[in-house]
Amino acid sequence: MRGPLLALMVCVFGITTGEFVLAGILPAVAGDLDVSIPAAGLLVTAYALGMIVGGPLLTAITAGRPRKPLVLGLLAVAVAGNLLSTVAPGYGVLFAARVVTALVTSTFFANAIVIAVSAAPPDKKGSTVAKLAFGMNLAMILGAPLGTWVGEAFGWRATFAAITVCCAIGLLLVTRSVPADQPGTRGRALREFTVFRDRNLLLAIATTAVANIGLLMVFTYLAPLLTGPGSFSASAVAPMLLVYGVGATIGNLVGGRLADRALLPSQLGALVLLVVLLLALWVSPTPVLTGLLVFAAGAVGFSVIPGMQARVLTSAAAAPTLAIAVNASAYQLAAAFAGWTGGRIISGPGVAAIYLVAAGTTLVGLALTGLAYRRERVTPAATG
Rank of each mutant, 00 (worst) to 15 (best):
G251Y: 07
L226M: 11
V165A: 15
T220L: 08
I37G: 03
F295N: 08
L138P: 05
P27H: 00
L371C: 09
T128L: 10
L258K: 03
G245A: 12
L322R: 01
L5W: 03
G247K: 04
A359P: 04
L138D: 09
P287R: 10
L292D: 10
L6I: 15
T362A: 14
A116L: 09
L356I: 14
F196L: 10
L57W: 05
R2I: 14
T101V: 12
R2V: 12
L263E: 06
V79T: 03
T59F: 03
G170F: 03
G50K: 00
I305H: 05
V87F: 01
V243L: 10
R67P: 10
N82D: 02
V100Y: 01
A334S: 15
V178Q: 01
L277Q: 06
A319C: 00
M1C: 09
V275K: 04
S315G: 13
I305S: 13
L226P: 06
L72W: 06
G170W: 05
S266G: 05
V71S: 00
A78W: 07
Y47N: 06
T290Y: 01
A316T: 08
L5T: 12
L277K: 07
N212H: 12
Y47S: 05
A97E: 03
A280V: 12
L273Q: 01
A359S: 14
L190E: 05
G348Q: 03
R176P: 10
A112H: 07
G170A: 09
S177L: 14
A317D: 11
L322M: 08
L132Y: 03
I113H: 04
G64K: 05
T16K: 08
I25W: 00
P265F: 08
V77R: 07
L225Q: 09
Y244M: 11
A116R: 02
V312D: 03
E152Y: 00
L333S: 12
A238D: 08
V93P: 04
T321G: 12
T105E: 15
V304Q: 07
G184P: 04
V288M: 15
I205H: 02
G245P: 09
L268I: 13
A382N: 12
I205F: 05
Y355A: 13
L277Y: 07
L278C: 10
V283S: 12
G184N: 10
G151P: 02
T321Q: 14
L42P: 00
R191H: 13
E192N: 08
L253P: 04
K131R: 15
S284D: 08
A330R: 02
P380W: 07
G365Y: 07
G269T: 04
R257K: 14
V246N: 06
P349K: 06
G251T: 10
L26V: 09
A97C: 07
T194H: 11
E192D: 13
